[in-house]
């Protein structure tokens, strides 16, 4: 199984480095441009979430992004060792794809925050969130190919 792990320090200026790399890696692993772009967006949202929320913008912590190719599927694990995600956020994340109507809920249309997790939930085919020891890990899976 082909896989790669990218690790960045928790500086938001590193965000585009890992997101753009994820896009290119996904294309190399067989994803089409649209799927690779969706993975890029979700990795971007997940890493930004780690930095802003798990680490509360503290510098010097680590965020890892592991990307691996399974049969007809790409898996991305975005992990941190900061504060765990609240259960309400996990519920949004794991709601499942095809829920774009959720963006209309509770006047969210004019809110300036609160879309990132729903974007991940909408674009990825399967999302899980685990805490093992001190490590929080968001696992996102995207089907590729036929």
């Amino acid at each position: 199984m082909r896989q790669i792990t990218l690790t960045i320090e928790s500086d938001i200026r590193n965000l585009s480095l890992v997101a753009v790399a994820a896009h290119r890696i996904c294309e190399q692993l067989g994803a089409g441009r649209e799927a690779a772009g969706q993975v890029e967006l979700c990795v971007n949202e997940a890493v930004a979430n780690c930095i802003h929320h798990a680490y509360r913008n503290a510098l010097g912590r680590l965020v890892s992004v592991k990307i691996l190719a399974a049969e007809h599927e790409i898996q991305c694990d975005v992990c941190d060792t900061g504060e765990s995600m609240p259960q309400a956020s996990v519920k949004i994340l794991t709601k499942g794809p095809g829920k774009a109507e959720d963006f209309d809920e509770k006047n969210l249309l004019l809110e300036e925050h609160g879309r990132g997790l729903k974007i991940i939930s909408s674009l990825m085919d399967h999302v899980t969130y685990l805490r093992e020891g001190t490590v929080n890990c968001l696992r996102m899976k995207k089907r590729i190919g036929p």
Partner: peptide, 16 residues
């Protein structure tokens, strides 16, 4: 060619 949720939030902020 790429915008994330924070970019959308910024546009809404300016719209307001």
């Amino acid at each position: 060619s790429f915008i994330d949720s924070s970019g959308l939030g910024a546009l809404i902020s300016v719209l307001k």
